[in-house]
Design a protein around this nucleic acid. Structure first.
Length: 464
RNA sequence: GUCCCCAUCGUCUAGAGGCCUAGGACACCUCCCUUUCACGGAGGCGACCGGGGUUCGAAUCCCCGUGGGGACGCCA
């Protein structure tokens, strides 16, 4: 059997971290089994769906490299299909018209809640042999409801949660088409999963409660029931639920915030899934290893610290070309392209090991291209009057040497020896003068890249 | 309220009855490396929610609590 999975977001917002993980798992499952991954846009909520959101989802998936084999399919473009199926169900009696008004339904719900009952449709328009239906009111266009079985249980073996069983008595007859004729979510999903031949439905576990209804409809349509895998949710860094109001950000925000897609992908893969002790792996490896058996059924808390660690790893792993290309866009106004400016790749090669974020990396190397401003505290602490004679001497020496890290190192050493100092005593003020801060890679290497003229000029600014 | 789901270090997790005096990773702490800060290396701290069973034996199976979450829309 050919494996077919799908990712079916509703375009009511950007692609967030939870959606991205669902997409990643569905994608990987298809890849692993040589199957097809399908993208389906569930845009039947005309009120809230927007073309911008569709684009945002497409952009997010593209950035992460989650390519789909079929689609994107848009449900709004499949209306004819839904209507046809709807009519068939009406004809077969597995669905029926309901003339309740919204107000009537609201009142029903409220009174049930008050009585401590589970709010549900009471079946007043459900046709039954020997039952007399109410008088059809005028001026009300009916909705269509699915005639759910009233006895027995629906059960399925959830691929991540195990067997789940729900009594049909808990389920009511849900609306599958609105009064305006448009089909609703649960119905569209069923028709699409059926017609698109989906074999494994991998989705968020907020859909667990929809599953029994969907299975019942699938059975009414005579369809094969796909397997289901419900993924637990991802909590924010603080353990709180992610929502638009709290912590949920677009995956594209991670790009803007300085994360490599490799890090985000690797991190997401490990959130809720594991392969023994494996922590670092690429997507090819992931697709080989991925399986549904090793998904945790419990919710996972997002941990930015660990993402940072992975990001640091992938920054070290990146090719210098790719890194330079990225950092180049994060550096302000092409400052690194001025003639005589230090080579960005060489600079990044010196700095990549100490970065866990691309924006931070860009910020760290900016002083190579723009004069830094040291803090008064650093100046006071390191550039002391006592060190100035030695610095003066070093400045003279540096003007006459071959500009290599080794020669620079020797020059500093010579001055240090001559003045009876420890190396850092001279290296620290140099750091502050040249980089603007008290932390940097080996100062001789920094100087070698900064260039002789620029180095002498920056030191000189403090000698006056 | 009703139904459903979940429960191992602070966090992500390994664990499918004996291999567990519970393993790995992030974070944290100590030491080493060192030209500062990082990186890297070596150590350390740190968990089976509680109570009952079942069993020769339970983190693993069952039940009950407790705690957390989700769902109950003419939203998806």
């Amino acid at each position: 059997m050919v494996i077919r999975t799908r990712f079916a977001p509703s375009p009511t917002g950007f692609l967030h971290i939870g959606g991205a993980r669902t997409a990643l798992f569905s994608w990987a499952y298809a890849k692993k089994h040589g199957g097809k991954f399908i993208l389906r846009i569930e845009d039947t909520d005309v009120e809230r769906s927007t073309p911008e959101a569709v684009q945002a989802i497409l952009d997010g998936m593209h950035w992460l490299g989650l390519d789909y084999d079929e689609g994107p399919f848009y449900q709004m473009q499949r209306m004819e299909t839904y209507k046809k199926v709807l009519q068939t169900m009406l004809d077969k009696g597995t669905a029926y018209h309901c003339y309740c008004s919204k107000e009537e339904l609201d009142a029903l719900r409220e009174s049930q809640m008050q009585q401590g009952l589970k709010p549900r449709y009471d079946g007043r328009w459900r046709p039954e042999t020997g039952k007399t239906l109410p008088q059809i009111p005028t001026g009300i266009t009916p909705t269509v409801r699915f005639k759910n079985p009233q006895t027995g249980v629906v059960a399925w073996n959830d691929l991540v949660k195990g067997r789940i069983e729900i009594a049909n008595a808990e389920l009511d007859d849900l609306i599958i088409a609105r009064a305006d004729g448009t089909p609703t979510y649960n119905f569209c999903v069923v028709v699409d999963d059926f017609e698109m031949g989906i074999t494994q439905v991998i989705r968020g576990d907020d859909h667990v409660n929809n599953t029994p209804r969907q299975i019942n409809m699938l059975m009414a349509l005579g369809a094969t029931i796909p397997e289901y895998a419900h993924l637990s949710m991802i909590l924010g860094d603080d353990g709180q639920k992610l929502s638009k109001r709290h912590g949920a950000v677009s995956v594209m925000q991670y790009h803007e915030d300085g994360y490599l897609k490799e890090a985000v992908l690797n991190y997401l893969a490990r959130l809720g899934w594991s392969h023994g002790d494996a922590e670092i792996f690429n997507m090819q490896q992931f697709c080989e290893w991925f399986d549904l058996d090793h998904i945790t059924p419990s919710a996972a808390q997002f941990n930015t610290e660990k993402l940072n660690w992975l990001n640091a790893h992938y920054i070290k792993e990146a090719t210098l070309d790719a890194l330079a290309e990225d950092i180049s866009t994060r550096l302000q106004a092409n400052i690194h392209k001025a003639s005589g400016a230090p080579d960005l790749k060489a600079v990044l090669n010196l700095y990549r090991e100490r970065a866990n974020n691309l924006n931070q990396l860009a910020n760290d190397v900016t002083y190579f291209y723009a004069l830094p401003q040291a803090s008064a505290a650093d100046v006071e602490k390191h550039i002391t009057p006592e060190i100035m004679p030695a610095m003066q001497k070093l400045h003279q020496q540096l003007a006459h040497i071959e500009w290599t890290a080794e020669a620079i190192h020797q020059a500093i050493n010579a001055v240090v020896t001559e003045f009876g100092l420890k190396f850092p005593k001279l290296a620290m003020p140099l750091r502050v003068m040249l980089t603007g801060i008290a932390q940097s890679p080996s100062i001789d290497q920094v100087m070698a890249l900064l260039g002789q003229n620029e180095t002498l000029s920056r030191i000189n600014a403090y000698l006056k």
